[in-house]
């Protein structure tokens, strides 16, 4: 966690572009929240037009730990929409991003319940979860 799911029109993105978008997800989420990059997941799935909202080429649904501020969530949404639009070569108005909060203790990753953002436990968790440089 976080888990970002981009639903896009078929063949909107090549594999290289999907990877570029996934890298942007890591950059944006970690820049805004300070979370460790090793926990950032991005899934891209292709959906037919009828399954996308009218006027949208892509939508991004992010599931993130509760506790982020509204300003942080707005920045994530804006920057991810821009990143996907730039990667795909479409207008930013065609991309819609939203986030959904999940309580940290409702998620287990690397065998432990995730800590609340900003808690003392999070600092220890970050120290232990960030892989040593190769």
């Amino acid at each position: 966690m976080p888990f970002y799911h981009a639903l896009v029109r078929p063949q909107l993105l090549t594999e290289a572009q999907r990877q570029q978008f996934a890298a942007a997800v890591v950059e944006v989420h970690c820049d805004v929240t300070g979370a460790p990059p090793s926990f950032v997941h991005a899934l891209v799935s292709e959906e037919h037009d009828a399954q996308l909202p009218a006027g949208r080429t892509a939508i991004i649904n992010g599931t993130i730990r509760a506790g982020r501020t509204d300003a942080q969530k707005a920045e994530i949404a804006t920057r991810l929409s821009q990143a996907l639009a730039e990667t795909a070569g479409v207008s930013v108005e065609e991309v819609q991003t939203s986030t959904r909060d999940i309580e940290a203790s409702h998620t287990m990753e690397a065998g432990v319940l995730l800590p609340e953002p900003g808690s003392p436990e999070e600092e220890a968790w970050k120290a232990g979860s960030v892989p040593a440089p190769a």
Binding site: R18, P37, A42, V44
Partner: peptide, 18 residues
């Protein structure tokens, strides 16, 4: 089931299960 090249962890091809 996610085809190769559609899911990423830390920006790289994912081996994770969710």
């Amino acid at each position: 089931t996610v085809a190769p090249g559609y899911m990423f962890t830390e920006g790289r091809r994912s081996t994770s299960s969710v």
